[in-house]
Design a protein around this nucleic acid. Structure first.
Lengths: 216, 216
DNA sequence: TGTACATCAGTGAACGCGCGTTCACTGATGTAC
DNA sequence: TGTACATCAGTGAACGCGCGTTCACTGATGTAC
């Protein structure tokens, strides 16, 4: 009953199978998108019968929620790692890009089209703030010059900073963290969705240019 | 047989019913997202039997493709109208935002998570270049100062401008049009997906700030 | 060490559902003489 | 103007499919004495 300590062989086996189910799930998502995810199809691919998976996930929804959680967790860890090694927005930006290109569908599970009915569980929003925290850490220790004509935004952020309530970053850092997030996300999501194909430009150049501009 | 000229009552009726089917389709998409679109459900909602819709669309895929085309067309028209009235990036930016907020699912049909197998038909990519053209028009007639440290991006764009091959805009305008697109899209897509909720900031402020910064 | 029992993984049949799509048909609307 | 015919909208039955999920059951694995 102890949650910590030695794992029994059965527990180990369970964890292993859960992991394999998730792996197959990611493969299916990569092949047909998240809405096409099917427990039966996963079971078939693993050489098991459909109902067998209900030993490991209580429903299809639980599996999807778990995948979303994993995606957020993975992003938060990636970002935090980059923010810890050297609190540098540039490094963080490149880490973010690598993470996104590594698995586009995982990126879209976090930042893609929302499903009208669905609401993410609470712990996911907690992970989301963890991500913002890492951004703020990095933005704070990057003391570039402020662009004069954006003081209006900083004034707004100085009084609307619930998202950074626990963080001591000054308005200029808030602004930088926020723009880092929205600008890079803009490029990444357009790139991953293929909206640059045929345009003849290199998204990496564009990305690097924005990153340079953000860190000055 | 003439494609132009008087419409027969039957043709008028056909067009009308096609339009109503699309309307119901949009309602369904708004309620459950695009993957949940079902011809049978639309028919039921219209008080018809399922197979009846096959008089108006040869398949579910044709309907979806048509909706995507309409979404692109609508965006292109909106953007062009704003670019024609006064070739002003600020006005264009506000028009874009209104269009996006007006129907988030329509926005996501254009810029949302791509379906792994799906490829848009050729005429849709043509409409996409139409959109870039309007952006370039507006960007060209907005002669703000260039930020010095982005000359590297301009140099890249000067030599990678297939997307603006038919357009006389100089590199500085290319850069502005591109950043207009990626930055505003970043904010809009995060806002529409609800990623700002709970953060306490006003996306409109952020959007306006970026717009101001882009037009200087 | 062996025996008796509890736990749990996985199966196969079944339920109900909604989907896209086809097909032969009915009945109304339009067209030609 | 009326009659004969062609066109076309819409129906209802049917097909085959895959889905999520439940349930009673088998057989293997672990546990207690």
């Amino acid at each position: 009953m102890a949650t910590a300590g030695k794992e029994t062989p059965r527990e180990r086996y369970r964890a292993q199978l859960r992991a394999e189910i998730k792996e197959r799930a990611w493969e299916q998502i990569a092949a047909a998108g998240a809405p096409g995810l099917s427990l039966n199809a996963i079971a078939k691919q693993m050489g098991m019968s459909g109902p067998a998976l209900y030993r490991y996930f209580t429903s299809r929804d639980e599996l999807i929620t778990e995948l979303i959680r994993d995606a957020y967790r993975s992003l938060a860890d990636t970002v935090r790692a980059a923010a810890v090694v050297d609190a540098d927005l540039t490094a963080l930006g490149h880490a973010l890009r690598s993470w996104a290109l590594d698995d586009p569908q995982r990126y879209f599970l976090v930042y893609g089209t929302p499903v009208p009915g669905y609401h993410a569980p609470d712990d996911v929003t907690e992970i989301a703030s963890e991500i913002m925290e890492s951004l703020l850490d990095a933005a704070q220790s990057c003391p570039g010059a402020d662009t004069a004509d954006q003081t209006r935004l900083e004034a707004h952020l100085a009084e609307h900073r619930q998202w950074a309530a626990d963080h001591p970053a000054p308005p200029a850092a808030l602004r930088r963290a926020l723009l880092f997030w929205t600008r890079l996300h803009g490029i990444l999501s357009l790139e991953l969705a293929g909206h640059f194909t045929g345009m003849g430009l290199d998204p990496a150049e564009l990305y690097a240019s924005e990153l340079r501009h953000l860190t000055q």
